[in-house]
Structure formats: structure tokens, C-alpha cells
Design a protein around this nucleic acid. Structure first.
Lengths: 236, 236
DNA sequence: CAATTCCGTTGATCCAGATCAAAAGAGGGG
DNA sequence: CCCCTCTTTTGATCTGGATCAACGGAATTG
């Protein structure tokens, strides 16, 4: 195993809000103990229930977080560059609550959890940054739960499309970043139902051709979807 | 408005993990700017979307956190003494994602959010404690989401009863701490369905008489409920 | 390029849970 | 103690979404 992150990756990681106001020496100390690996698609990075040995940072590619119980499985979230995942487990030194697997070829940095906890214990700037990050994560999950409990699957899909549309902003047409079967699981429905849900949104100007989605009348779709800042606004 | 928390309440608040290793002077500074109020049942303490002016601490009673969208409403969680709520909104200086109302006569401490953020910025012990608290909150919501996405309503009820049974530990019989209509909402089902779900659990030795639940054969119920540490264990 | 496999779609059917309606309890206040 | 209101329960019905089955299409492999 190659230990020590290549210095060429430093700027990307350093750019993360999480490491922004950490002393240089501490940052490099952290990086020296960590390493970076390239993974092909469909590789399990993490299995839920395992002890959290590393804080993970996705540098490129896509990673899906999923959970399972009693033979069922569901996609909880997807992670995109550049961000960390399973920070809470690392901090609490508790088992992972979710599994992680690569969806595409991905480059992932691994920082030993113990190192993270050590720096956290001594570096005030880092501790504050972790607070901000965790608060953000917490609020995201609360929003996801509201989405699940308050909306029908058709409404969830409509709002998901609007959120994607915002990110890639402007263009009427965009690509789904997620396989449909996984999108279905993420939205809490079956693939069959997702297929029908897309049809159901045709009435509001949504066109689907493969992975390409066209939103022909944003206002009309929004009138149906009724997006709310307290559920759909990621930045707050 | 009475400003300054009565000193008789200090020990309770101080006992919270969150304030445990904070300097005495800082703690008293924080307490002096805060106050304590007694509320009757059914009082709205917080409305979702409002700016988060205070960190709340429940000293006695019960508070329900709920959210609504498009005319629908759902109970997200209940809060019991002694613990804080809406910490994430306070820290991020962001709007509340949930509303809060008292279910019973409750005693609640209110600490100005700005004060919390000030102390957080300077007191390393406090920052670390907030991290632990937020990590705990985050993991709780993830568990709740797994519960929702992976289980049927009957399974959710069965596991809920087992969790309650654990807390009040030992006795085969215990009281529901939540009105049934609210429990239904919390579990993501209708009151009618909850009533039927209780019947459905009779087959596994669950008896219901008003708010009193008897679990006659814990193992049998557990065989059906299949509780998992990664969903039902609150302490990790 | 045929064979295989996996994904997405479509149709038919089924079921968990929602909705609607109404009766039965359970307080709570005058 | 009675009246009013709210909760819970029960029954009947409806429906959103799951499941089952089958097929077309895209990508993958030999």
C-alpha cells in the first residue's frame, strides 16, 4: 500500500471547506499519513457495520452510499467530488451506518480516522470546520426525510428534476447523473415505478430520451412540484 | 421577559454532555444571557422557516418536532429532558427546518444563538462537544431514514416497541409516551393504520390496553422485528 | 456478429396502506 | 353529571405503488 498522498492532490483537498483554516503543518501531517487510490466502478469501499478506519474524500468519480436490512437495500445518497463522506462515524469512532461503492472509476483519498480525531482534538479551526460540515450533513438528511415523509413518489421525482435542473443551471436539457435503477432506489421507489413516474410528468413538460431529460416548462413543473427552500435548497 | 437563568437550573444544564468541559466563567456567561420559561401543553415554540434565535434546552416535559409541506404535516422526532434541540440551525445561523411544540407542560431554557456561536468560536472544549452532539444527531437521522426506507409500517412499529421496551428495561409492560395519533405520524402512517398494526402484532404477543403495552414474548416479537444495531441502537 | 447479460419499459395483477364514514371511548369544563 | 370535543377504533372502499412476467434494447463478451 502506498502511504502518503501525492502532493499534486494537496490543493484539491486543501480547497475543501473542512481543511481551509487549518495550520499548514497540521494539514501536511494529516496528508502524509493518508493515501490516494484509484478504484474501478462497482467496488465496495465500505461495508456498513465495519469500524470506521478512514475518513474518505472523493476526488473524482461517483460513490453511492447505501444501506440494507433483512435482504432489502436502498440508496441513501450519492457523493460527488470534492467532498468527504462518513465524517460522523470517523469522529465518533463508531461503525459505519452505510456502505459505499464506486459507481464510476473514482479517485479516493483515505485519511486514517485516528489521525483525524487527533487533529480534531487539538486544532480549534479544524474542530469548527467539522461542526459546520456536520451541521450541513445533518440538515441535508433532515431535508431528505421530509422529502420522504411528506411527498408522493411523483412529487419527489419532480422536485429531484428541478434540483438537478438548478445545478446545471439554465439549459432546458440535462443528463441524469445516476443510473435509473439507482435513482429509483434513492427516491424510494421501484425502477418500474420510476419509469411510470417519468410518464406522469410528461403532462408537465418533462421529456425523457435515455438519460437526457428536457424540462420544457420549468414554471409548469414547479407549479406541480411546489419546491420548498426548507426541503430542496441544498445551500442552507 | 425575565433574563438570566435561575441558578437552580444550572446543574441540570451543566450536566449536559454539551456543556460538560466548558470553563465555568464561560458557562455562567452563557447562562446569564439566557432564560427559562414554563410552557403549557400545545404551545408552538418554533415555526419552521423562522430564523434560529435561540438554542433550546428541554428541562422537563415533552416537545415534538414536526414539519409540513403543501398542507401535509409529519412528526419528525420527539425531544425529552434533558437535551438540546435545533443545534444545527443555531450553529449555521440558518432557518429552522422543523417546528417545535410542547406536548405536555414543559420547562425550556433558551440560550441566544448569537451567544452560542460566540462561545463556540472561542472555546475549544465547547466546539468539540458540539461536534460529538451533532455527529450523534446526524447518525440518529440516518437511522430514522433507514427505518423508513427499509421497513414496512408493521416492522417499524414492532421495532419501536422493542426500543421503548429496552429503555424502560425489564418490565413486560410499559406506557406509551406518545399519543397514538402522534406516534402514527412519527412512524409514517395514519392513526387508523397504527390501530390495525397493533392488532397485527397480537400474533407476536403484544397486548394493548389504552396506553399500556404488554410485551409478553420479547423473543417472539424480536424474531419478527429483526432489530439491528445499525438502525435501532440509539447509543451508537 | 451471434450470444449473453443487464437495464429499462410496458402490461397485468396484487397488496399495503390511505381515505372515507361512523361508532365508541375518553377526558374536560361548565 | 351532562354536554361537547377529541381520540381511537372498526368497517368498507379506494389507490399508489409493489410485484410478477415478458419483451425490446443497449452494452459486453466470446
Amino acid at each position: 500500500m502506498f502511504v502518503g498522498m501525492p502532493e499534486s492532490d494537496y490543493p484539491d483537498v486543501r480547497g475543501l471547506h473542512l481543511f481551509a483554516d487549518m495550520a499548514d503543518t497540521r494539514f501536511e501531517e494529516l496528508m502524509r499519513g493518508s493515501y490516494v487510490q484509484n478504484f474501478p466502478p462497482q467496488v465496495d469501499l465500505i461495508t456498513e457495520g465495519d469500524p470506521s478506519d478512514f475518513l474518505h474524500i472523493i476526488l473524482s468519480g461517483t460513490v453511492a452510499l447505501s444501506s440494507s436490512w433483512n435482504g432489502r437495500e436502498t440508496v441513501m445518497a450519492t457523493v460527488r467530488p470534492i467532498s468527504t463522506f462518513i465524517l460522523a462515524a470517523t469522529i465518533k469512532d463508531a461503525p459505519y451506518l452505510m456502505s459505499a461503492k464506486t459507481l464510476k472509476k473514482s479517485r479516493v483519498a483515505l485519511i486514517p480516522s485516528q489521525d483525524v480525531r487527533n487533529v480534531f482534538a487539538t486544532d480549534h479551526g479544524f474542530a469548527r470546520a467539522i461542526v459546520t460540515e456536520l451541521a450541513q450533513c445533518y440538515r441535508s438528511v433532515v431535508k431528505a426525510q421530509k422529502d420522504l415523509k411528506l411527498r408522493t413518489s411523483l412529487e419527489r421525482l419532480a422536485n429531484y428534476l428541478l434540483r438537478q435542473h438548478n445545478r446545471l443551471d439554465g439549459a432546458t436539457t440535462f443528463e441524469l447523473t445516476l443510473e435509473k435503477r439507482r435513482l429509483a432506489s434513492f427516491l424510494g421507489m421501484t425502477p418500474e415505478n420510476l419509469s411510470r413516474a417519468f410518464k406522469g410528468l410528461q403532462a408537465y413538460g418533462v421529456e425523457v430520451r435515455g438519460n437526457t431529460i428536457a424540462i420544457n416548462d420549468r414554471d409548469d413543473l414547479a407549479k406541480f412540484a411546489k419546491p420548498s427552500a426548507l426541503i430542496d435548497d441544498f445551500s442552507s
